[in-house]
Amino acid sequence: MKRSTHLQDVVALVAGIYAFLSPIWTTTTTRATWTMVVLGVITALVALAEMVRPDMVPLEGLMVILGAAFIVAPWVMGFSTTRPMAWTAWIVGAVTLLVGVADLQVTRTHRRDMTAPSH
């Protein structure tokens, strides 16, 4: 299976785009909007980089960090009381975090298989 066909990368791309666009239809504040736009764009760009140039730099760990950033953003950026946007951040964060962990597992398994001696 080619690296660019991994479902994890597509899911991360969709999550990033959803986060970026979510202020359009979700009750929000200025700070929440900018947080979601910035994190969403970064997530989408990292996912695209993993799809287009998987051999470049292993970015799976960055996807885990982005997922965690989405999860803590409502508290850190002060929009946890804006429930619609906070829930959007938590859900997108959970999806992104899980995708990053799954991608790390796939990458580690693939690397281990590549370095294992063949008999």
Rank of each mutant, 00 (worst) to 15 (best):
G67E: 06
A49C: 08
W90V: 09
A116I: 07
A94N: 04
V14S: 04
T96M: 10
I71M: 14
F70S: 01
D55H: 14
V37P: 03
T107K: 15
E50G: 14
A86N: 08
V10E: 01
D113W: 11
F20V: 03
M1P: 13
V46F: 15
R53K: 12
L97D: 09
A86V: 07
R3L: 11
A44M: 01
A15L: 05
R111A: 12
V76R: 09
Y18S: 00
L39M: 10
A47H: 07
T26I: 13
A15Y: 00
H119Q: 10
V11D: 02
A86W: 07
A86D: 08
T29L: 02
A116V: 11
G78E: 09
G93N: 08
I24G: 00
H110N: 10
L21Q: 08
T109K: 14
M36K: 01
T115D: 11
P54A: 07
L97A: 11
M85Y: 03
G78Y: 13
V95T: 04
V37G: 03
L59M: 15
V41L: 15
V64W: 05
P54C: 07
G100V: 11
Y18V: 06
V46T: 11
V106E: 12
L97K: 08
H6L: 15
T96L: 04
A89I: 05
L45K: 02
I91Q: 04
M114R: 15
H110P: 00
A47T: 07
A32W: 01
